[in-house]
Nucleic acid binder design. Structure first.
Lengths: 198, 198
DNA sequence: AATCGTCTGGGACAGTTGACCCGGTCGATT
DNA sequence: AATCGACCGGGTCAACTGTCCCAGACGATT
């Protein structure tokens, strides 16, 4: 077995846990299963992490950060409608490209809502979503020289609601056309809430 | 311990499983925990159910049926906007009144997507959502003497997307005002897709 | 009251899980 | 090359899980 730094080992274990969860579900990510996936021993696990909880916390934080980064791609160009459409399409590509991240994140969110040790993590996660969405909307408004006729916070929530809802439905029926159609329709509706101006 | 019919015992156990899941999460619903909640013995459990899977299947079916029934409340009256708003508000009241049903259903959906024995159940669940949503939209269109300018199937998906997304976000941050505002905004946008006519 | 299917009590089983521990091995620093 | 902290192998532990079993108690039918 390769001899790597504790920090590197931690990363490997977190990645392995993510892969196992994505492939076999949250419950399948036992310490042994994760260690096997990472090619590490149980002792190595408990050398790197004080407990499974600790890995879960790190996994949640890391996955969350990756998602926010992926969602942050804003495409400004042409009309408000076009900007919204291409931004949403950009997000959607990241989902279809790696569906597991979404299902893992959903499971982590569910778990974080119950586990006292992870209290606040789900809330932070959603706060980050809302912040990212708000920034995206503000960027588009600035780039297209329009302003929103509803509070940006409310629009941001709607954006998160729609992306989450579309993702959830797609995870079940995998109907990509319907998902994209819904996103486009929403982009058009949202564009209707923008008027020219500062 | 009371002596009840096997059928009644099954119902009790399903209810107990639902309560335990709602209170402590999906993973907490072990056979022993469920039996304790129902006031039954382990033997009673395996007399009524061949396996835990069997209970899970029945629980999913029953919870699903309850939800579809709850969502089916259509309020037609006044303008399209008003009808949509009050229908969505009606749905929302059922969510806030029993938040556990939503989180349990979400966990069951997650589980059903992985478990081969429950294959198809999640899909059926969502198909039922979409059917209910489509019927709701058609009822409103008929009652308000309008027609939709987009395919009803697409609008139905948007309806499901929004209700699911709003519910998901609310389960995390419990911001009822924001949830209701999002639903109202969506109702207004949806109303914009209706024009007078048959 | 005898019978029979329905139901229950308590216990047992093997398998899995998270956690832990100790002796030892590696590699860089000195 | 001696030292020391980082790291690993393999084994152990108690707790918990789903499942199963059997002797017996109940209640309706005969």
């Amino acid at each position: 077995m390769a001899r790597v730094s504790a920090q590197e080992r931690r990363r490997q274990l977190v990645d392995a846990a993510f892969r196992v969860m994505g492939r076999e579900g949250f419950a399948a990510a036992t310490t042994r299963r994760v260690c096997a996936e990472a090619g590490a021993s149980l002792a190595a696990f408990h050398y790197c992490f004080a407990s499974k909880q600790e890995l879960l916390v790190e996994l949640t934080a890391q996955t969350m950060a990756g998602l926010v980064a992926a969602r942050a791609g804003v495409h400004v160009g042409g009309s408000v409608t076009e900007s919204l459409r291409s931004t949403l399409r950009g997000y959607w590509e990241t989902v279809e490209q790696d569906p597991n991240r979404e299902s893992v994140l959903m499971a982590l969110t569910q778990h974080a809502l119950r586990e006292p040790a992870l209290a606040g993590i789900a809330e932070q996660q959603y706060a980050a979503y809302h912040r990212t969405a708000r920034e995206t909307l503000e960027e588009i408004a600035a780039g297209c020289e329009v302003r929103w006729t509803l509070p940006v916070a409310q629009l941001a929530r709607m954006l998160v609601v729609v992306t989450d809802g579309v993702t959830l439905a797609w995870l079940v029926d995998r109907d990509s056309d319907a998902a994209l159609a819904a996103l486009n329709a929403f982009a058009d509706q949202l564009a209707g809430l923008a008027v020219a101006g500062s």
